[in-house]
């Protein structure tokens, strides 16, 4: 089993490293982590937990643009003051 911290850090790197270029869905993150951690990775356990920690800590946020994505927090262009 991959450690939650390891998965969390890897996910954060993926999302923040491609901010503005790629929008990640939870399913994309799980697929990328399977590539990275192989059979050690369980999306229902450490996968879910890592996303929960990242979002609860505010390092990443959920967004909705025709589907739900996970992104680094940012100010949206459409937002009014």
């Amino acid at each position: 089993m991959a450690a939650v911290e390891e998965v969390r850090d890897a996910m954060y790197k993926m999302v923040s490293g491609s901010a503005g270029q790629k929008k990640w869905k939870a399913t994309d993150l799980h697929k990328a982590c399977i590539e990275l951690f192989g059979d050690d990775y369980n999306k229902r356990k450490e996968g879910k937990e890592a996303i929960k920690e990242l979002v609860n800590s505010g390092k990443l946020v959920y967004t909705y643009f025709g589907g739900s994505f996970i992104e680094v927090p940012r100010v949206e262009g459409a937002a009014n003051d």
Binding site: K52, V55, N56, G58, V61, Y62, T63, Y64, F65, S68, I70, E71, P73, R74, V75, E76, A78, A79, N80, D81
Partner: peptide, 24 residues
């Protein structure tokens, strides 16, 4: 109305549907 895709409450990915007016 303009679509707001980022607003929400801490830790949640659902439950809030963002809307802004384009005539603020």
């Amino acid at each position: 109305w303009k679509h707001g895709g980022i607003v929400g409450v801490m830790g949640y990915g659902g439950g809030v549907i963002g809307r802004y007016s384009d005539l603020p």
